[in-house]
Design a protein around this nucleic acid. Structure first.
Lengths: 243, 243
DNA sequence: CGCGCAATTGATTACTATCAAGAGGAGTGG
DNA sequence: CCACTCCTCTTGATAGTAATCAATTGCGCG
């Protein structure tokens, strides 16, 4: 009952780079199974050396890091198509944790075969590096947000970012609504704001009629103004490879 | 007069992963020349599509991003051994700029040969991905710092980080002194603090006799306390590959 | 119904930014 | 050699933004 890669619903989306059948079959051979986990389940742990790598197929999660002072930094949100565990694959140890926020389905790859796969499929090796570069790009953007933007802008930036990501996955409805099953605390930890301040800033966005957020669903009423507040241009999602 | 890779002074350091002679020769063939640039020279520009990739051989620089609001985020500092331009190599466009702070020498690689090199040398392809993962790790740490640490901790964290990096490169003298040719503004932009606040916070570290910084040279008088303030453990620099 | 968890709201504190101004060094031109 | 400018570092005063502390509401659950 695992999804055959050739029939992968994600791969059909335009955000993901096209591959031909033989390439997809090579990935299929690399894939060792599928994993389903529920909300709150830890998938990868900071400091651990996971024997598996994953590609998120459905559901949402988050990556975070816990500091010595007990505080938590959410590194980013995990969407379908994200490749998880590369750090452990390359550096033998995860530097952050990943956990599921909703039910998730993941493709599972064995790390023991990772090296062989990487060596035998140069184009896929290239894709993996590409993925790492894309990740690096996002982290750079996030860093710039935390470092240089006000609370309001950061929030607007994060919502815009997630909107675009969900849009690329076809999850945004005609009215600008999409699933956002995270807690305010998660957003706060991602943006370096306190929970209370996040809540109050969110209220401002609501008052300005830019967004509303209830029962795990975000409605963006005015994307242009929101993106403007964020101080980010509204570019389409980058095409990215999918393993 | 370019440095032959086999005699590369960097490669001798323990932080860099060991390669055998034939592997080094393959890199030598990939290397197309050497570049020397002076302080302030831009090397890679945000939005550009550089035909070259670089490895920093000597000198220091910085990577930064300019935001729509005119502010600048320093993504990180560039040290010898850093591989520059990977984003352009993978995504066809740099997402941040890189410029020299001091005189720098760089190994130059042609992007046109990058793909061939990547495909023909799986172990090196692996190293490049590894490098990207290391970079991702640092950005994650930086994100956590900006998001969750106070100004004082951030500063202590940054100095500790740079100390360790310089130490791995053999640049730290017996008294804990090492070159730090950046301006306070650079540090401020890296840490998301204002120049004035950075200056005052630096003064606190000085008062506490933890560090002193003059004429481009930083002296760390008490690394343990500094690292403690940073709320980071004092682990050795990760081994990383060198191209 | 009591509890635990997420979201709110109000009051207060404190960390950081912004505004201003001056000192000291490097480089330039008269 | 000196006046003048530019740049970086410093320091003082003041304004805000965001954190912390406290308390309340609403909901799902055993």
């Amino acid at each position: 009952m695992p999804t055959p890669c050739l029939a992968c619903p994600l791969r059909a989306r335009r955000v993901f780079a096209k591959l031909d059948q033989s390439e997809i079959r090579a990935i299929q051979r690399f894939k060792s199974g599928e994993l389903r986990i529920g909300p709150g389940t830890p998938l990868l742990l900071e400091g651990s050396n996971s024997p598996q790598l994953y590609t998120a197929l459905s559901g949402l999660g988050l990556r975070y890091k816990t500091l010595e002072n007990g505080r938590r930094q959410v590194i980013n949100f995990v969407f379908p198509g994200d490749f998880l565990g590369l750090q452990a694959g390359m550096m033998n140890e995860m530097q952050h944790s990943v956990e599921a926020t909703t039910d998730m389905t993941l493709c599972v790859f064995n790390r023991s075969e990772f090296f062989r796969f990487f060596g035998a499929n140069p184009a896929r090796a290239f894709d993996i590096t590409w993925l790492a570069a894309v990740e690096e790009h996002f982290l750079g953007e996030a860093l710039a947000s935390l470092g240089q933007r006000s609370g309001l802008s950061r929030l607007a930036w994060a919502i815009t970012r997630i909107y675009l990501r969900q849009h690329a996955l076809g999850q945004v409805d005609a009215k600008g609504g999409f699933p956002l099953p995270y807690r305010q605390q998660d957003l706060a930890d991602a943006l370096g704001l306190s929970l209370v301040h996040t809540n109050k800033t969110l209220a401002k966005l609501r008052e300005r009629q830019l967004v509303s957020w209830q029962e795990g669903r975000m409605q963006v009423h005015d994307l242009t103004t929101l993106a403007d507040l964020a101080g980010a241009d509204l570019e389409a999602e980058l095409v990215r490879p999918l393993l």
